[in-house]
């Protein structure tokens, strides 16, 4: 979706403010927001693509006016309500009004380290040969889906070249909407800045994205 999360190429946000390496959290509530998000995710009620979509479907004004962990909490609330784990009334009242819905058991403290170390690999065995090969010219589709996508606006309808074939990966555009993994070949596609930004493009800049096969079509050499 063409939401506020799709920021590449926008202007006017001002300079980047660096920060020292040791500053992991800036408030105690940020720690709780991170931990709640991870522990809730471990219930297996949604996947990472659904999480991203919950955040990007915040109103654009809300998204940009919120700090990052605020966005996470607002996204988490949406997921919890959608999965009927908590109700909007419970969130508004800050108290339990309904019996909990049965779920898998909560993540135990002893399982935190192994769970984080294992992660959630998103690659899948290939079922068909890759359509494109390294070095081939491709063009991204000019698409504007109303649902989740990982093809940013600035890289739509652009001609680039396949630089690597990453393998077969879960397709977020389907997975975010509960349509299953629908795994596809994933490619590293590289564009010269002039293709993305026209005459303002830095002549010594290349930008790459990781693009699923259905984002691409073959292009003339």
């Amino acid at each position: 979706m063409n939401g506020a999360q799709d920021l590449g190429g926008m202007m006017g946000f001002g300079p980047v403010a660096g920060e020292p390496e040791g500053e992991v959290f800036h408030a105690d509530w940020e720690k709780r927001a991170l931990a709640l998000t991870i522990a809730s995710g471990a219930l297996g009620e949604w996947n990472i693509d659904m999480s991203r979509h919950a955040r990007e479907t915040l109103h654009p004004t809300d998204y940009l006016a919120s700090s990052y962990y605020e966005v996470w909490i607002k996204g988490l609330e949406k997921l919890l309500v959608a999965r009927e784990l908590v109700t909007s009334e419970e969130i508004a009242a800050s108290s339990v009004l309904h019996a909990p819905r049965p779920t898998s058991p909560p993540l135990a403290a002893a399982d935190v380290a192994p769970t984080l170390a294992k992660g959630t690999p998103c690659d899948r065995p290939p079922q068909a040969p890759a359509r494109f090969k390294v070095g081939q010219a491709v063009r991204t589709l000019n698409v504007n889906p109303s649902g989740h996508t990982r093809l940013p606006r600035y890289a739509r309808g652009k001609r680039g070249r396949i630089e690597r074939v990453h393998g077969v990966f879960i397709f977020p555009d389907a997975n975010a909407h509960g349509l299953g993994p629908s795994a596809q070949w994933l490619y590293l596609v590289c564009f010269p800045a002039s293709e993305l930004w026209g005459r303002e493009g830095d002549p010594a800049l290349d930008v790459s994205i990781d693009a699923w096969e259905s984002y691409l079509e073959g292009a003339a050499e």
Binding site: L36, P100, A109, A113
Partner: peptide, 12 residues
């Protein structure tokens, strides 16, 4: 509601 364990939150 029993969905998260506070000790796990601390461990994260």
């Amino acid at each position: 509601k029993g969905y998260v364990d506070p000790a796990a939150l601390d461990a994260i």
